[in-house]
């Protein structure tokens, strides 16, 4: 019995704070204990006010680019490092995990800001810099999930089995490896996308006025207009929530694949 009361309490601990911005965003005003009225005006403000709309577009572009870059970088790296059996492979695998702990977004932001401030690579303040920063932040998440996918399907044994049946590298990739790790790659993509959509810390350091993302806009709106801020906050919660639902769907599919 106590177990279930605690369980409900723990569920509420996450759900209640997350519901606050959502309720706020649908209400006309909320000064007293209960919110009043129902409106979609604050969501409209995201789409109709040019600054908000632009920020939304910038965020979508940045998040999609960070996902694509991470697929190009992290998936081959996870494949290669999974195959490296030596001490070096082990060290690189561990290094890729510890790197983000020792170098938090704050430090990466400071370093990026300084390194690319002038030609030949004057990227600071541009959209490129934001994309690069988000790719770096997303990398460990993508890498960890894809590496785990390669490990659980026992990639080596599968590849060897396919090779012994006469499959060449391309065929092994196309019919054996990619279909097996695809749920992992998609999960990683969703995670990187959600993190990038909400990222504030690095973005606020490296983005100039040309690359205002949605969270940067939210930061200004928390001071200026709580209503619009509530709609942006709620939108970011929906993004996280949706990607997690998709991820757990992919997770159950992966488990089912493994069981077969």
């Amino acid at each position: 019995m106590i177990r279930w009361i605690l369980f409900i309490f723990l569920v509420l601990y996450i759900v209640v704070p997350m519901l606050m911005p959502v309720i706020f965003s649908f209400s006309v005003f909320w000064q007293d204990i209960l919110p009043q009225g129902f409106t979609l005006r604050w969501y409209e403000a995201i789409l109709t006010r040019p600054a908000n709309y632009e920020a939304l577009m910038v965020s979508l572009i940045v998040a999609s680019s960070a996902v694509l870059l991470n697929i190009l970088i992290a998936v081959p790296a996870a494949y290669a490092l999974n195959r490296m059996g030596s001490k070096w492979g082990q060290r690189l695998r561990e290094g890729a995990m510890i790197l983000p702990l020792v170098f938090p977004p704050l430090v990466v932001g400071t370093a990026l800001l300084q390194a690319f401030a002038r030609p030949p690579l004057a990227l600071t303040g541009t959209l490129w810099m934001v994309i690069i920063a988000h790719t770096i932040l997303g990398f460990p998440f993508m890498f960890r999930i894809v590496l785990a996918a390669f490990q659980t399907i026992d990639e080596r044994t599968l590849s060897e089995a396919a090779a012994s049946l006469g499959a060449n590298l391309w065929q092994r990739m196309r019919y054996v490896l990619i279909p097996n790790v695809l749920p992992g790659i998609l999960s990683g993509a969703l995670l990187v996308f959600a993190i990038s959509m909400g990222e504030f810390e690095v973005t606020s350091m490296v983005a100039g006025f040309t690359a205002q993302t949605l969270p940067l806009r939210l930061f200004q709106q928390i001071r200026n207009d709580m209503r619009v801020a509530s709609a942006i906050t709620a939108f970011l919660i929906y993004v996280s929530f949706l990607s997690f639902i998709l991820m757990s769907y992919l997770g159950t599919r992966m488990r089912r694949l493994r069981a077969v």
């Binding site: 996450i14 704070p17 606050m20 000064q31 993190i195 909400g198 504030f200 969270p215 928390i222 906050t233």
Partner: peptide, 29 residues
């Protein structure tokens, strides 16, 4: 429960700040 507790990982620090301002700010609920 574990899926629910994975959710905050991707949440923006600003989202959580906003949520707690509404919940526990000076005139929070």
């Amino acid at each position: 429960l574990l899926s629910l507790y994975a959710l905050p990982m991707t949440l923006s620090g600003l989202v959580v700040a906003f949520a707690f301002i509404v919940l526990l700010g000076r005139n929070g609920v």
